[in-house]
Amino acid sequence: MKITTSSYISAAGAFLNGQQKFTFRETNWQKECYQQLGLDYPKFHKMDHLSKMTVLATELIYSEGHLNALMDDEPELLFANANASQHTDMKFIESYTQQGNPSPSLFVYTLPNILTGELAIRHKWYGENTFFITPQFDSSLFAERLYHAARKGGNWCLCGWVESKVDEKNKVTEECFLFLVALTDNTADRSSFAAALDELLTNYRNGNSGNLNR
């Protein structure tokens, strides 16, 4: 198990393999990132924030190679967060409590695993996908599940921690951390892999301090 590529995006910027690629100035930084990446994918604008961030961070990883060379069922998608689809859930509740009608286009995004569906559609990936909910980023759970995937003969796993949470004062906390793992590379055991993963995320978060408390 070896991390070949990682990306991180938040309000403060977009990072690829530890290097800052973009900084954002706009409040709607996800749209700004879409423009900076030069994407032309109209469906993007309809997506919830979890899917938008995941699509963007995957484009960064994609630009580094590996992913584009894989078979269509090869990349396994392994995602997690702490708050499921809480941000869209609150918007959907508002649609029927404040705006008169439950909104179907919001309802379809009230499941966290929709983001893996959006990735599968975008890149035509037919492989395995799982979404976990853990109270915090749980590096040991990722390490364990990656180890299982390797034992089952998998080659590549695209993993992600994607969060979009709104509090009572309408303050939004968002980040997206993706890492592509070559499962056949035996250079790390589970505990050292988990430790490396924690360190990587800490570095990304510190590299743009304040984004989680915006």
Partner: peptide, 25 residues
């Protein structure tokens, strides 16, 4: 820690498959 899987309507089957992985590996 309780492992929580929230994967829409396939959650249950995925949960059993995940359980089998834990037991095997």
């Amino acid at each position: 820690d309780v492992i929580v899987i929230s994967n829409a309507c396939i959650s249950g089957v995925i949960a059993i498959n995940t359980a089998a992985d834990y037991l095997r590996y």
